[in-house]
Measured scan of single mutants.
Amino acid sequence: MSIQHFRVALIPFFAAFCLPVFAHPETLVKVKDAEDQLGARVGYIELDLNSGKILESFRPEERFPMMSTFKVLLCGAVLSRVDAGQEQLGRRIHYSQNDLVEYSPVTEKHLTDGMTVRELCSAAITMSDNTAANLLLTTIGGPKELTAFLHNMGDHVTRLDRWEPELNEAIPNDERDTTMPAAMATTLRKLLTGELLTLASRQQLIDWMEADKVAGPLLRSALPAGWFIADKSGAGERGSRGIIAALGPDGKPSRIVVIYTTGSQATMDERNRQIAEIGASLIKHW
């Protein structure tokens, strides 16, 4: 067993022997301040990774656009098919120029040779490549099948209805392509620590998230040296922004954090800054 596999296998073990965790309302004060600064709703939840206990939450059962955070769930569904012998990570998928959609920095470079399922998941999570996500959605049967996968996990809230990039439209009061912070946090925890996926697939999923290259201005910008984070960000229309993450000190994750916002007129930089400040408060009061 590799060191990384050992780390993920012992996530519940280490967490069980940690000192009790206590909620700190100071972080919620910052979440509410972010709402004021952005002029928009902000949803927040913080779960203990081992027990699933909610440590703090704000608007945990209000719907927010998922945006690209759905790509972690998508690759979880792909990995479940791999575990069941219905898919192979090494299978190569070929596609054409007509398949390319807006923001496809990886797939646009491989029109000639195609990409493997493993490479597509890596591109979808680490670079948020939209064509990679659409190609992977095709392998599982489309958005409705991802929703069905989530329902089978016990998540009857999260739903995907459309493809990239239309799913980022974020129309107010439109339930399409949305989740709730509580539902997303619980589902992410199941994917990373539950028995739904094999140990190898859980490790692969967290490795992809740990290698995320496009979430630097968010929670990662607030992390002290030595902290662990595996995350996936999302951005959408109407001032929408979000991030889902597993993080913790001492090089291992111990909490799940989900943050979503929508309806702001603020710039992307300002949305990023507010999420980073929430992260800084979380870490300060850990």
Rank of each mutant, 00 (worst) to 15 (best):
T139L: 15
L196T: 15
I125T: 06
K30R: 12
H24D: 13
M153E: 08
I171D: 13
Q4H: 14
L47C: 09
D231S: 05
H151T: 12
I206D: 04
Q97G: 12
F13H: 06
N134V: 04
D83R: 03
F13T: 12
D99H: 08
M66H: 05
M1K: 01
L192E: 02
E26A: 14
D83L: 02
L205I: 09
E277W: 06
Q203H: 15
A9F: 12
H151D: 09
A40H: 04
V257G: 01
K109S: 14
R241C: 04
D161A: 06
D129I: 00
S240P: 01
P224M: 04
H285L: 09
A148P: 07
Q203T: 12
R118M: 10
D212Q: 07
R189C: 12
R271H: 07
E62C: 07
K284S: 14
V21G: 08
M115H: 03
P224V: 03
E108S: 12
T179Q: 00
M268R: 07
V214F: 05
P25S: 10
K232Y: 00
L160D: 02
R92M: 10
M66R: 00
R273K: 15
H94G: 10
V21A: 14
M184G: 01
M209G: 03
I244C: 09
V78I: 10
P181S: 04
I45E: 05
R189I: 07
K190E: 15
L191V: 09
A34H: 03
L205V: 06
M268I: 10
K53A: 14
I11V: 12
V258R: 00
L205R: 00
M1F: 02
D113W: 07
I278Q: 00
C18F: 06
D155L: 01
E169F: 12
M180V: 14
T198Q: 11
H156M: 08
G52D: 08
G242Y: 00
T112N: 13
G242T: 02
F17T: 11
W163H: 09
R189W: 13
A9C: 12
H5S: 07
V214K: 08
R162P: 01
T27Q: 06
A15T: 15
G141E: 06
L49R: 03
I275A: 02
W227D: 00
A185S: 08
A222Q: 14
L74C: 05
D83P: 02
G242F: 00
S281E: 14
E237H: 12
L282K: 02
E166L: 14
D113I: 08
M127W: 13
L282G: 03
H94V: 13
R41Y: 11
L120R: 00
N173Y: 12
P143H: 08
W208G: 01
G263W: 04
I243Q: 03
G90P: 08
G216M: 10
L89Y: 07
D250I: 10
P60C: 12
C121Y: 00
M127I: 09
S233P: 05
L55E: 08
N272M: 03
